[in-house]
Design a protein around this nucleic acid. Structure first.
Lengths: 165, 165
DNA sequence: TGACATGGCTAACGCCGTAAGCCATGATGG
DNA sequence: CCATCATGGCTTACGGCGTTAGCCATGTCA
């Protein structure tokens, strides 16, 4: 495994365990047993690390969602469960403008494929479904729903709109 | 107008015109004709400013959406148009966990009211609709849809799921 | 064996948010 | 009328951030 990949591993751990404000070059270096400037021998800058996390997250989430059982419900469950299991990575993967120039081609479309397939290839319905799932997850992750809200029920209600074409 | 409100005005301007990375205490102070530490005479800390922007954004967006013509389409248009007119404020208002302790009570529910009314008071449908609109806006604002995508059509498709109960 | 790439290091720069403490101004009340 | 005090500026400074420059040990290879 390349030194760069080790850094990305550490970065993913720090991000999930301690939050985005702990994701500093000095903290990454500390965990790698080196000093911050040495990181730049393996990585262009901090944005490069974040773009790497974004790419990894898209790949992993895409795989997870693609492995879901057929049906909208299972797809939605897979989407939501990945996001809640990796909330900070989800934010990195979706909130910032895709660093398309720093990410391997195909990763983006591969992540979108399962959703597109689930709605029979209709791109508008695919985007709507994606937006719905993303919106629900995003609002849940930033605690925008009242505490104690029955979000399972909200998801079921939300998906019924998509069930019949 | 209080000095604090002036600071919030300047902050909103800087945020929208130059982006979040320009929203620094020194830049705000410069535009106010003072030095950064003097800001602390009127504001607790930077988070206080951001919470103030969040509160303002919720109020303004709530008013804008509440003024929409009846019907899901007009509601959606109002939601989307406010967000695209104030993209950075929209992010501040929705992406970070609501600073509920720093925001006047009632603001949150007032912002939610028009959406809740539009679906006849069903909270699950209200949350689903909100999530759908938020997801579409959020993904649009961070350029996650392919360039040139016909988002008007996507919105129309998305809303048909909500038209019939 | 000598040249060179690799990957560490230290020192330092210019930002950032923020704390501490000083001082002019103007209002307040004895 | 003057003493007191709150207000709202100021300078200085601290620690942390991302990042650059330049040094040097090690290992590889012609």
């Amino acid at each position: 495994m390349s030194r760069r990949d080790e850094i990305l591993d550490v970065a993913a751990t720090v991000l999930e365990e301690e939050g985005p404000e702990a994701l500093t070059m000095r903290e990454l270096a500390r965990r790698m047993g080196m000093r911050a400037p040495s990181l730049y021998k393996h990585v262009r800058d901090k944005d490069d690390i974040v773009a790497g996390l974004q790419e990894r997250a898209l790949i992993d989430m895409g795989r997870h969602v693609a492995a879901a059982a057929p049906g909208l419900g299972a797809l939605a469950d897979a989407y939501r469960s990945w996001a809640t299991a990796h909330p900070r990575l989800y934010e990195v993967a979706t909130r910032r403008p895709l660093a398309r120039d720093r990410i391997a081609p195909g990763v983006e479309s591969a992540a979108a494929a399962p959703i597109l397939a689930a709605v029979g290839g209709d791109e508008h319905r695919a985007r709507a479904l994606w937006a719905l799932a993303h919106g629900l997850v995003d609002l849940e992750l930033s605690d925008r729903f009242p505490p104690g809200a029955d979000l399972d029920a909200t998801w079921r209600t939300a998906l019924t709109g998509f069930e019949r074409h």
